[in-house]
């Protein structure tokens, strides 16, 4: 298809699409440094909105909650997802049912999973809070970790596992000494992705965090703030959140040459 594509037209399409994708984000970045804080006029460069942001107790509390949720759910999801990936790839029989279960958390609409978990927790009379957000985030996070690790395992040379067994290693020893080191970049890449998703996740957290300010996460805080319109602090907050996501994703991409899931 390369031979028949018109290069000038292709360049125009790419420029237009990338402009559409990146101009809105860039505007937020720029505005976060605008002294006046409004898009109506540029009144000079200033980091004062970042200062106000860090002085805002509510936002800082939400950020801390988000950090707790993301770290804990990422650790759990990384362990479960990696074991799952190895287990699935080890299996000789490929079950369609199994594939569906593993794939489902990635494609099920967030709102459905969110209300399902909400109903489930309230039926069991579980008091909701950060812990329910964490276990809920593990559901989709482990699926993403599993998908990244499996992509790497597809190109894994399984004969080295047999070689390890042949040299006298037990299965756990082989996993620890041979499989895991080879898989480590993909495992880290998967966990970075999970971390990013967890930091940004809003809908499931919104339904499973329970009532009260104590378990509010950053996206919930952002949602509450932007419903009341534009405030300059959100520009600063958005810039920070986006920058962190981009860094984590670039790192993940770097480690995992296979790319993001589906890529």
């Amino acid at each position: 298809m390369r031979s028949q594509a018109n290069p000038r037209l292709m360049l125009m399409i790419l420029s237009a699409v990338f402009a559409f994708l990146y101009i809105p984000i860039s505007v937020l970045f720029a505005l976060s440094f605008n002294e006046g804080g409004l898009p109506t006029a540029w009144t000079g460069f200033s980091t004062k909105w970042y200062g106000e942001l860090f002085a805002n107790q509510e936002i800082m509390g939400a950020a801390l909650n988000t950090l707790i949720v993301a770290v804990v759910s990422t650790i759990l999801a990384t362990i479960l997802g990696t074991l799952l990936a190895i287990g699935v790839e080890l299996r000789r029989r490929k079950g369609r049912f199994l594939e569906t279960i593993i794939f489902a958390p990635m494609i099920i609409p967030d709102i459905v999973l969110a209300i399902a978990l909400l109903s489930f927790f309230s039926l069991l009379n579980v008091t909701m809070g950060l812990h329910t957000v964490i276990v809920s985030h593990v559901v989709f996070n482990l699926a993403f970790v599993c998908s990244v690790v499996r992509a790497r395992l597809k190109t894994f040379d399984w004969s080295i596992v047999e070689a390890s067994a042949d040299l006298g290693a037990s299965t756990p020893m082989t996993l620890w000494r041979v499989v895991l080191p080879v898989m480590l970049p993909a495992v880290i890449a998967g966990s970075l992705l999970a971390f990013t998703l967890s930091v940004d996740e809003f809908i499931i957290a919104f339904f499973t965090a329970g009532a009260g300010r104590a378990s509010i996460t950053l996206p919930m805080q952002i949602f509450a703030m932007i419903r009341f319109g534009v405030t300059p602090e959100i520009n600063a907050l958005a810039t920070i959140v986006m920058t962190l996501s981009v860094i984590a994703l670039a790192l993940s991409q770097r480690l995992n040459r296979g790319g993001l899931p589906g890529q």
């Binding site: 109506t40 958005a238 996501s245």
Partner: peptide, 27 residues
């Protein structure tokens, strides 16, 4: 491809909020 997909993995609310800033009456 990486840069085309990058926004997808970042915060949904922030991306939506960006359009409020653009489309706002005083936007």
């Amino acid at each position: 491809l990486f840069f085309a997909v990058l926004p997808f993995w970042s915060n949904y609310l922030v991306r939506t909020y960006a359009w409020i800033v653009l489309l706002n009456r005083e936007g």
